[in-house]
Design a protein around this nucleic acid. Structure first.
Lengths: 202, 202
DNA sequence: ATTTATACTGTATATATATTCAGTATAATT
DNA sequence: AATTATACTGAATATATATACAGTATAAAT
């Protein structure tokens, strides 16, 4: 996928916005109105550049005959899947992203930022199995009983959250695993987010 | 939402299909071509009827100015959620449908027909908890180890499938529950489908 | 040094398109 | 019995729209 110039990006954004707003693509004149061009040929040539670079297709002769290609259309509608590796934090950096899957607005009750691919069986009694995708909302506001993504230095785990006074307990849902105790002296402790849903691909 | 006539449904389907195929809505002439009408006014009057009934909006004067309303856009993209009640089969009949949730094409690897709302903990060791939504594909072709929706008379259950010779075993994933044995004398036994995925709403 | 891409204005025009008007006919509603 | 909705054909037309052509100017690539 060839890089776009700043102006070409603006035109592509304009097309996406127009479709979202109206349900159909803009005319050359519409693009000029939105972006302040005074000649329809300004829009025309940008469209041909976008076509040449593969971001749109144009049906010749058809009014509003602009079609966003999969490549350019998908980007705004996918959610990243991040691998839970023992050492390494689940950030949205490119190198940690396993893949993208199509986003679905109201699949879960609350919004979420990414899927975490679960490794190991430390939460099996909570019905969270190896390779499940846990929907994570990035937040540090968590309550007792929430299933949280916690980071201690470079180690990232998924556990039940339980705080009482100054002490925090991270509780696994599996008798074979140990509870983890956190206190104010513990360094490098951080709540990355909490689970708001789960998806399993059989 | 007012009911549509057969012809109006066809026109609405035609619009949806055209948008999916091309990325932009059809003209009156396009609709005529797809549905065999000989006058653009045939399309025009159907569009005005669809507008009046709230399925689309039309931007007057704009070419291809058809916009599917939220109501009509969702319908083809939702999947039913069916409650698993101890007595009663999970059919797609209206009275058994709990709600619809937005459908997402490639969420799971294989296609599925409905979500089954799980009651009870008979599959807890398989990570299937109360109120989980299990994605069910309607089929009777199942293999050993598949998690299946089985019906015995009016009773419907979710269990592991295991067949050997003439005998079929339905195995729970919970020591508190008993295995169920099926043989050729057993009447009213039927495999409704199998699990191809799971969604949990926290 | 020449070509190609970017980034526009400005004018012109063939045609794609929405939309109105005039009919015909059947079924449903008031 | 009169009106309204459905379901079209067929013709006409104003205008919305894509698109080509003629320029100007700068930056990048070959």
């Amino acid at each position: 996928m060839k890089e776009l110039t700043i102006q070409q990006k603006k035109v592509l954004q304009c097309i996406k916005f127009y479709i979202k707003k109206t349900g159909f693509p803009p005319t050359r004149a519409d693009i000029c109105r939105e972006l302040g061009f005074k000649s329809p040929n300004a829009a025309e040539s940008h469209l041909r550049a976008l076509e040449k670079k593969g971001y749109i297709t144009i049906e010749n002769g058809a009014s509003r005959g602009i079609n966003l290609t999969e490549n350019s259309a998908e980007k705004s509608q996918t959610i990243p899947v991040i691998g839970l590796v023992a050492a390494g934090s689940p950030t949205l950096a490119d190198e940690n992203i396993e893949k993208h899957i199509p986003y679905q607005e109201s699949l879960f009750l609350s919004e979420f930022d990414y899927f975490l691919r679960v490794k190991g069986l430390s939460m099996k009694d909570a019905g969270i199995m190896e390779d499940d995708l846990v929907a994570i909302k990035k937040t540090s506001e968590v309550r007792n009983g929430d299933i949280v993504v916690a980071r201690i230095d470079d180690e990232v785990t998924l556990k039940y959250f339980q705080s009482s006074g100054d002490q925090i307990k991270l509780i696994p849902a599996n008798d074979d695993f140990e509870e983890i105790y956190i206190n104010k002296e513990t360094e490098g402790f951080f709540i990355e987010g909490k689970s708001v849903g789960l998806v399993r691909e059989n």
